[in-house]
C-alpha cells in the first residue's frame, strides 16, 4: 500500500503548488475569456458569452495590426541579434589580449532592467535634447525624429532590443562555438578550405542546434517585450510600435475589459505556440536534440 501510494503522497505538495500557481490561473483566465467581464464598469453587460470574445478578437483590426507589428519586431530583432551575436562569438573565440574583460563587459546591457533601458534610450533618442542627434549634428548630419518619427520609431525600438539582447545571443552562441570539436576544422585546414568556406560548411552546420535553440529562446522572449516599448513609445506614434503586449496591456489595464483581454491573450498564446511548433518541426530541433541526447 505504502509502496503504491507513497510516491504520489510525496508528490502531492508539488501538484498542489503546480495547480495553485499554474493550472488554476490558466484555467481561470480561460473561463474569464468566455465571459463579458468589466469589473470596473458595473453597468456594462456581464456574464457568460461563450466564444463571442474570440469572434471579436478575430475581427479586431487593432489586434491584427498589433500582431503584424509584433511579427516584424520579433523577426527583425532576432535576426539582427543573431547575426551580431554570432559575429561577436566568433571574434571572441580568437585568443586576443583583453578578450576576457571585453566578454564580461559585453554582457552588461542584458543585465540592465528593461524599464531603465527604456527610459535611458528615450532620453538619448530625444530629437532636440538627446545625445544621439547631438552627435549626428556634431559631424554635420541632420538630426532625426527617432521615436517621434512614423518611419523610424519601429526601427528605433528594434535597435534598443538588439542592443539589449545581442549579449544573450552571444552568450549561447559563444558557448556553442567553444564546444565544437577541433578535428573538423583541422581537416578543413588540411583540405585548404578558406575561412569563409570553413564557416559556411563546417561551423554553421555544427552550430545549427545551438542556433535554433538561441533563436527559439530569443524569439519567445522578444514576442513578450513590453517594458522598454512602454517606456519609449507606449505603442506610438500612431500605433507603429503597438506590439501585442502593449495592446493587451491597454485592453486589460486602460479599458479594464478583462474578458476580452483574456481572450486576446489566449489567441496570441495559441498563435505563438503554433509558430514555435512550426519552427521546431521545420528545423528538426527536437529530433536532433534527441539524437544528440
Amino acid at each position: 500500500m505504502r509502496e503504491r501510494y507513497g510516491p504520489w503522497l510525496m508528490l502531492t505538495p508539488c501538484f498542489i503548488v503546480l495547480f495553485v500557481v499554474g493550472i488554476y490561473p490558466l484555467g481561470y483566465s480561460l473561463w474569464i475569456s468566455l465571459n463579458a467581464y468589466h469589473p470596473t464598469n458595473p453597468s456594462f453587460p456581464q456574464g457568460f458569452i461563450l466564444f463571442e470574445n474570440y469572434v471579436t478578437a478575430f475581427f479586431d483590426e487593432r489586434a491584427r495590426h498589433a500582431l503584424g507589428v509584433t511579427a516584424l519586431f520579433t523577426f527583425s530583432s532576432v535576426s539582427l541579434s543573431l547575426v551580431l551575436g554570432m559575429g561577436i562569438a566568433l571574434l571572441f573565440n580568437i585568443r586576443l589580449p583583453g578578450v576576457a574583460i571585453a566578454r564580461a563587459l559585453i554582457l552588461i546591457p542584458m543585465l540592465v532592467t528593461p524599464i531603465a533601458v527604456g527610459i535611458t534610450w528615450r532620453i538619448m533618442y530625444n530629437p532636440e535634447l538627446g545625445v544621439i542627434n547631438y552627435l549626428l549634428r556634431l559631424v554635420g548630419l541632420p538630426g532625426q525624429g527617432w521615436l517621434g518619427s512614423m518611419n523610424q520609431a519601429l526601427l528605433s525600438v528594434i535597435i534598443v532590443d538588439v542592443w539589449q539582447w545581442t549579449p544573450f545571443m552571444f552568450l549561447i552562441l559563444f558557448a556553442g562555438v567553444r564546444s565544437l570539436p577541433k578535428s573538423p576544422f583541422e581537416a578543413a585546414a588540411i583540405d585548404g578550405a578558406a575561412r569563409w568556406q570553413t564557416f559556411l560548411y563546417v561551423t554553421l552546420p555544427m552550430m545549427r542546434p545551438v542556433i535554433v535553440l538561441a533563436v527559439l529562446l530569443r524569439a519567445v522572449d522578444s514576442v513578450r517585450t513590453f517594458d522598454q516599448i512602454f517606456m519609449m513609445t507606449r505603442g506610438g506614434p500612431n500605433l507603429v510600435t503597438d506590439l501585442a503586449s502593449i495592446y493587451l496591456h491597454r485592453v486589460n489595464f486602460k479599458f479594464f475589459d478583462i474578458g476580452y483581454g483574456a481572450a486576446l491573450s489566449w489567441a496570441f498564446l495559441i498563435l505563438l505556440l503554433a509558430a514555435v511548433i512550426a519552427f521546431i518541426r521545420y528545423t528538426g530541433f527536437l529530433r536532433r536534440a534527441t539524437e544528440a541526447g
Binding site: P127, G143, W146, G148, S149, A153, G236, N238
Partner: peptide, 8 residues
C-alpha cells in the same frame, strides 16, 4: 520640433 509625435 522633430519628434513631436512622441512627446508627452
Amino acid at each position: 520640433p522633430q519628434g513631436v509625435f512622441n512627446f508627452d
